[in-house]
């Protein structure tokens, strides 16, 4: 005879539990951590490269880089001045998950770090579903991607606490309706902290790095 057993459990609850463990570990070390997400080419690594020199005399920064293959991004972070740079190769997986972050955390001495930047795999869909345990999820959008991205990837735009809009210097050259973009963002994520900037010209970088420094101070 068939009986129905009630379950009512979130499908990704195992990942959520692991993310909580990561968060506890990061918090107890007094570290502020961010999960940088974006489509490929939006400028996650460029943002890290631009950010690190600005924080040079202020913070000790570690970078964990997620990619399907290669250590190109971790190498770039190292070169830009990261205290430590760890590459996670997901071997085909389209996102980082909390278990991958845990094994990367084991390779880091968190007591020597103020800020931990996790660079997720370039993808606007999957990373949004997997909590890592970082204190803030940040989306790096960019002007050439187009103004319709909030509408097409609502899960990503809703799940973040901070939005960086990169490549602002290209605004005069590409069709991008800022009002339409903002409208989509506002519906999905009202009042989200936003930093329009350009990694190329440096415009807007000061506000972004000031915010990072303030967040780190609040964790000490």
């Amino acid at each position: 005879m068939t009986t129905r057993v009630p379950v009512v459990e979130k499908i990704l609850s195992a990942n959520d539990r692991m993310a909580e463990e990561n968060r506890a570990r990061i918090e107890s070390a007094g570290v502020f951590s961010i999960n940088l997400m974006a489509s490929p080419g939006a400028g996650k690594t460029s943002l890290i490269e631009r950010t690190l020199p600005c924080l040079k005399d202020k913070l000790h920064v570690a970078v964990i880089d997620g990619d399907i293959a290669t250590s190109i991004d971790a190498d770039r972070a190292s070169k830009a001045g990261a205290q430590a740079a760890i590459q996670i190769n997901t071997g085909g997986d389209c996102h980082l998950d909390a278990i991958m972050l845990r094994s990367a955390l084991e390779q880091l001495d968190l007591t020597k770090i103020d800020l931990l930047i996790v660079e997720n795999v370039g993808n606007l869909v999957c990373p949004a579903s997997f909590n890592l345990g970082t204190q803030r999820s940040i989306l790096v959008a960019s002007i050439p991607e187009g103004d319709d991205k909030p509408y097409k990837y609502p899960g990503m735009y809703r799940g973040v606490q901070v939005l960086v809009v990169n490549k602002m210097d290209l605004l005069p050259y590409v069709p991008f309706n800022m009002d339409y973009f903002r409208k989509g963002v506002e519906v999905l994520n009202p009042g989200v902290v936003t930093f329009p900037l350009s990694c190329k010209t440096g415009e807007g970088m000061q506000a972004w790095t000031d915010w990072l420094v303030d967040q780190v101070k609040s964790k000490r």
């Binding site: 068939t2 379950v7 009512v8 459990e9 999905l188």
Partner: peptide, 15 residues
Amino acid sequence: ITKGDEFRVDSIDVE
């Protein structure tokens, strides 16, 4: 958004 985020195993049928 008030509905549409659901992502769960609600129940299983067993013998």
